[in-house]
């Protein structure tokens, strides 16, 4: 048997080969971990009065860039239409009429009016004075039960029929001191626009945007799997308590529930979803309404409407406008509009 020239040389070679061997294994392991399946990037920011989470992945671009572009878009819409903004809507409410409104505002007003008409006013973009009366306009506002006189006065200046809108002239006017509030659809619109922004940068990007429970899908998980969305148990202890599951490849889902903003007085729960007819929190027997729609804006607005309409025949018309409804009633029974079950199968 040949022997090493000297024992120290031998040791050096043993050491060298040992090092090579170990580094080979380490390299192999690193190679494996680098080739993990497509990773999603999560980013959460506070906009539109809620936490907005963007989860995105792209094979051609940095998901960080995509998320930042999307947040820029959301912030722009928040600044323009958000409740605290001093933009075109505030001006309209101050002056009562406006000429030559821009296309985007025009689109939002038109969409709001269309949804209001479709739902016979169950969704109403003019409820701001009522909302403020109850103290639901802001987290910090003092919440109280207004007296009948106050409600009656407020009802005198609400109702979507008090908006006159001419699309061709770009002219809007408000009568009886009505105030328009696009907060109800601006959140969904912001999500939709953020998705459009991401899609314009990378048409094959996948992921979703979650704006306080209103979820719009950018693209299917890993390109071919549905996003699993849980419907929050309206009487659950925590947000994580889920009663139903929805599988979304595209489109959007939104939920309105009486647990979002409410106060309890004399063991009666007064929540923030007001019935435009009575001016009081809606008492339709619904405690949570979830709507799947083709855009987040529609899903959000129709969820509010479905909550107010309740299990009346009216709600069965909503699928006609592209809104599939799941209602959770006070006794925790669940109603689904035909077609909703398609989204509950994997």
């Amino acid at each position: 048997m040949p022997k090493g020239n000297s024992s120290s040389l031998l040791r050096n070679r043993v050491f060298l080969y040992g090092l090579l061997f170990v580094s080979a294994i380490v390299l192999l392991t690193i190679v494996f971990f680098r080739q993990k399946p497509l990773e999603y990037y999560d980013k959460t920011e506070y906009h539109l009065g809620t936490y907005v989470t963007i989860r995105v992945s792209s094979s051609t671009m940095s998901p960080v860039t995509l998320a930042e572009a999307a947040f820029t878009e959301i912030k722009r819409i928040d600044d323009k239409f958000g409740s605290r903004s001093n933009g075109v809507i505030a001006e309209l409410n101050r002056t009562g009429e406006l000429h030559d409104i821009d296309k985007e505002t025009s689109f939002l007003i038109r969409s709001a009016l269309e949804i209001a008409r479709n739902t016979s006013g169950a969704f109403d973009p003019t409820l701001y004075s009522l909302t403020r009366l109850w103290g639901f306009d802001d987290e910090s506002s003092k919440k109280r039960i207004p007296n009948d006189k106050e409600i009656e006065d407020a009802l005198g200046s609400t109702g979507f029929s008090r908006i006159t809108y001419d699309e061709e002239l770009g002219y809007v006017s408000l009568v009886d001191g009505a105030m328009i509030d696009l907060g109800g659809i601006a959140k969904g619109y912001a999500v939709d626009m953020a998705i459009a922004k991401i899609k314009s940068l990378d048409p094959d990007a996948t992921g979703f945007i979650d704006a306080g429970g209103d979820i719009g899908v950018i693209g299917p998980k890993y390109g071919n799997r549905p996003w699993i969305v849980g419907v929050r148990n309206p009487r659950g202890e925590s947000v994580q308590d889920v009663i139903e599951y929805i599988y979304l490849y595209d489109g959007a889902v939104a939920t309105s529930g009486d647990y979002e903003r409410f106060f309890v007085e004399d063991s009666v729960r007064y929540h923030h979803i007001l019935d435009p007819e009575t001016g009081f929190p809606s008492r339709s027997g619904v405690i949570s309404a979830t709507v799947i729609g083709k855009s987040t804006m529609l899903a959000d607005a129709y969820a509010t409407a479905a909550f107010v309409i309740g299990m009346e025949p009216g709600v069965t018309f909503l699928p006609r406008f592209g809104a599939l409804v799941l209602l959770v009633m006070e006794d925790m029974s669940i109603f689904r509009s035909p077609g909703f079950e398609v989204y509950q199968e994997r």
Binding site: L28, T29, V31, F32, Q35
Partner: peptide
């Protein structure tokens, strides 16, 4: 071990 590492990193891509 190396065989499985090669299979999992280059071929099946699942650990």
């Amino acid at each position: 071990f190396s065989q499985l590492m090669v299979a999992s990193s280059l071929i099946v891509k699942s650990i």
